[in-house]
Nucleic acid binder design. Structure first.
Length: 574
DNA sequence: GCCGTTTTCGGCCCGACTGTTTTCAGTCG
C-alpha cells in the first residue's frame, strides 16, 4: 500500500482543492497545501509519529495534526466528506487543466453545470464559455489547447508513479513460495517516461498459486479477468495491472518477449526467422527439428541470436540490435557512476530541507560532492538576496569536506526573455557552479528562443542549462528551439545540458540527450531536489540517459571533483 | 490554519502575464 505520508498528503491536498473551489479562505487553502507537501516530503514515516511529533512537522499545527491522525487511522475526515457531498466528483479534476484554477472551476460549475472534463469539452464545442464574465474567444481557444495537451498523456502515468506501484506489487508476489522469479516488464522495464499499464511477469511451476496470490494483492480493487496463467487487475487507484506466469525454463525468453517494444520484438523475430529459428515467449527454437536453443535467461536468448545482451532501456529498435550484432553497444551510464548531485535546493528558497539536512542526505548517498543551487532573485517569490546567498556560502564552506563530501556553492539562475541573467557578472564569478534555467516566457518564436538559450550558454559563468526544454509532462509542452544550434553552442562553450531527473520533467528527454551527446555536448544528470527524498529521483534521470545511449564519459557528475572543477572553470580563472 | 529576532494577533511568497477589462481578476512559477 502507499506510504501513509502519501495517503494523508493526498487527503490534505483534496481538502485544499475542495476548499478553494467552494471559495474558502485562501490562506486556509494555502495552509492545507503547504501541510500536504510537507507531509509528503517528510523523511520520517508518519505511522511512527504521535500527535506531538506530528505537530513538529513544518506547516503542521495542532488542528492539522488532528486531521492527519484521523486520515491515517480511520481514513475518514468529516470535513472532507462534507465538502465531497457539496462538490461533484469530477469538478476537482478540472484543476489539473493548466490555466484553469479554482475560481473558474467554480464559475463553470455554477453557471453552466460543467463538472468534468468531458462537460468542459462539450461547453467549448458549443462556445458557451465565452458568454461568461471574464471569458472570451481567446480564453476558450487557450483552454482547448490546454486540455489537448493534458489529454495527450492519455491516461498514462508518470514513470515514478508506475515504478513505485510496480515495486510494491512485485514485492507482494516475491514472498509467495510458488514464485521462482517475478519482475515488472513492458514499457516500465524499458523506463519509458510514461507508462500505460503495469505488466508483471512471474516464473513458476505452479501458476494457479501465483494467480491466487495475485488476486489477493491488497493494492488491487478488483480482478476482472483471470485465467490459468494470465490475469488482469485494477488497483484502487484505477491502474491496470497485467500478470503473466511462465514456466521457469522460459523465464529469459518471456522477459525478452514482454520487455521489448513492438518494433524491437519484430526485429528480433525477423532475425530469428532468417536463421531458420522461431522466437516466442517460450524460447528460441530451431524450426526443422523443434530443438529449443535458448530460453532460460535473456543472455542466452540474445546470445543464440548472435547478439550481445541488450539492456532493457535500449530495446526500442533505435539501432541497438545492429549495435549488439557488431558488438558496439555503448557502456551505458549507471547509477553507481554518479559521484554527486549538481542541482539541489534548500529551504533558503523553495526547498523543504535545511542546508544541513541536504548535506547529511547527500552523505548517506555516499556522494563525493554536492552542489547547492538555490533560486536567484529574479524568481521574486523566493525572496533570494545577495546577502542570503553570501550567508549560505559561508555556512556551506563550514560544512565542506566533512564526511568526505565536498560542497559546491551554486545557484539556479533565471534566463530572462532576452537571455540575460540574475546578478552582475562580478557576483556570478564568485559561485562554484551555476545552473541557468527558463522559468517564464515559454512561448516565443523558435529563432528568439534559440538566441535566448545560446546567450545563456555562452555566458562565461554558466555551467549547466537546467531542464533545457522546460516541459512538464502532461502539463506544459517543451519550448521550441533549434536543437542543433543550441547543442553546438553548448559543446563549443563548455556548458553542460541537464538531464533533470524529476519524474514530471525528464528534461532533456532520451532522444534529445542522445542528439546532444552525438554533437559533443556534456551532460549533467541532476535531481533538482527540493527535499531529501528527491535525491532518490536520480534513478529516473539515469534511466532517461540510458535510453539516450549516454556513456559515463559524457556525464560531468561521473567525473572526479578535480576534473569537474576544471570543466566548471570554463577555461578561465575563478 | 500556521507561525513568531515585527511573537499569541495579524500577517501570510511577489510579480509577471494574459485576456478581459477600461482598472482588474485569475493563474502561474
Amino acid at each position: 500500500m502507499p506510504r501513509s505520508n502519501d495517503r494523508v498528503a493526498e487527503g490534505l491536498s483534496e481538502l485544499a482543492d475542495l476548499l478553494a473551489i467552494t471559495g474558502g479562505d485562501p490562506y486556509r487553502v494555502r495552509a492545507y497545501e503547504k501541510a500536504a507537501r510537507s507531509v509528503a516530503l517528510y523523511p520520517i514515516d508518519i505511522d511512527e509519529l504521535d500527535a506531538k511529533a506530528l505537530d513538529a512537522i513544518p506547516a503542521v499545527g495542532p488542528r492539522i495534526s488532528k486531521k492527519i491522525i484521523q486520515l491515517r487511522d480511520g481514513g475518514h475526515l468529516e470535513e472532507l466528506d462534507e465538502l465531497r457531498a457539496q462538490v461533484p466528483a469530477g469538478l476537482r479534476s478540472l484543476l489539473s487543466v493548466p490555466g484553469l484554477g479554482p475560481k473558474r472551476a467554480h464559475q463553470v460549475y455554477e453557471e453552466l453545470r460543467v463538472a468534468s472534463i468531458p462537460d468542459l469539452l462539450e461547453a467549448l464545442e458549443h462556445q458557451r464559455l465565452r458568454e461568461l464574465h471574464g471569458w472570451g474567444p481567446t480564453s476558450e481557444a487557450r483552454l482547448a489547447a490546454a486540455i489537448e495537451q493534458y489529454q495527450q498523456a492519455g491516461g498514462r502515468m508518470q514513470l515514478g508513479v508506475a515504478l513505485a506501484l510496480a515495486e510494491e506489487l512485485v514485492g507482494g508476489l516475491a514472498s509467495v513460495p510458488a514464485v521462482n522469479e517475478v519482475t515488472y516488464a513492458g514499457s516500465l522495464r524499458r523506463m519509458r517516461e510514461t507508462v500505460g499499464d503495469i505488466d508483471l511477469l512471474a516464473a513458476s511451476s505452479n501458476p494457479a498459486a501465483v494467480m491466487e496470490a495475485f488476486s489477493r494483492l491488497p493494492q488491487l480493487a478488483e480482478v476482472p479477468a483471470r485465467g490459468p496463467t494470465k490475469a488482469t487487475g485494477i488497483t484502487v487507484t484505477g491502474i491496470h495491472v497485467d500478470v503473466r506466469v511462465v514456466p521457469p525454463s522460459s523465464w529469459g525468453a518471456a522477459l525478452v518477449y514482454f520487455t521489448g517494444s513492438k518494433a524491437h520484438n519484430i526485429h528480433l523475430r525477423r532475425m530469428a526467422q532468417r536463421a531458420g529459428l522461431k522466437l516466442s515467449e517460450y524460447g528460441l527454437e530451431r524450426i526443422d527439428d523443434g530443438k529449443m536453443l535458448a530460453s532460460a535467461t535473456e543472455e542466452q536468448v540474445y546470445g543464440a541470436l548472435g547478439l550481445a545482451f541488450v539492456p532493457p532501456t535500449l530495446r526500442e529498435d533505435r539501432g541497438e540490435i545492429e549495435a549488439a550484432l557488431e558488438g558496439s553497444l555503448p557502456r551505458l551510464v549507471d547509477l553507481g557512476d554518479i559521484r554527486g548531485d549538481l542541482h539541489t535546493h534548500t529551504n533558503l528558497t523553495d526547498g523543504m530541507a535545511s542546508l544541513e539536512e541536504m548535506v547529511a542526505a547527500a552523505r548517506r548517498h555516499r556522494y563525493r560532492y554536492l552542489a547547492v543551487t538555490d533560486h536567484a532573485p529574479l524568481m521574486a517569490m523566493q525572496r533570494m538576496t545577495t546577502e542570503k546567498a553570501l550567508a549560505q556560502r559561508a555556512a556551506l564552506r563550514a560544512l565542506d569536506g566533512a564526511g568526505g563530501l565536498r560542497l559546491l556553492h551554486g545557484s539556479e539562475l533565471n534566463i530572462q526573455a532576452d537571455g540575460s541573467l540574475d546578478w552582475d557578472d562580478d557576483f556570478l564569478a564568485g559561485f562554484d557552479l551555476l545552473v541557468a534555467s527558463i522559468h517564464s516566457a515559454f512561448s516565443m518564436s523558435r529563432d528568439e528562443m534559440t538566441a535566448r538559450l545560446i546567450k545563456a550558454i555562452e555566458h562565461p559563468a554558466v555551467n549547466i542549462i537546467g531542464h533545457p526544454t522546460a516541459r512538464s509532462i502532461g502539463h506544459r509542452p517543451p519550448i521550441v528551439f533549434d536543437a542543433k544550434a543550441v547543442f553546438d553552442a553548448a559543446a563549443r562553450a563548455g556548458t553542460a545540458l541537464e538531464i533533470n531527473s524529476f519524474p514530471d520533467r525528464l528534461d532533456l528527454d532520451d532522444e534529445l540527450a542522445r542528439l546532444a551527446q552525438d554533437r559533443g555536448v556534456k551532460l549533467a544528470i541532476s535531481t533538482d531536489a527540493h527535499a531529501t527524498r528527491h535525491l532518490d529521483h536520480l534513478r529516473y534521470g539515469v534511466a532517461t540517459a540510458q535510453r539516450g545511449w549516454i556513456r559515463p564519459e559524457s556525464v560531468i557528475n561521473t567525473w572526479p571533483l578535480a576534473r569537474l572543477r576544471r570543466f566548471l572553470a570554463k577555461g578561465r580563472h575563478r
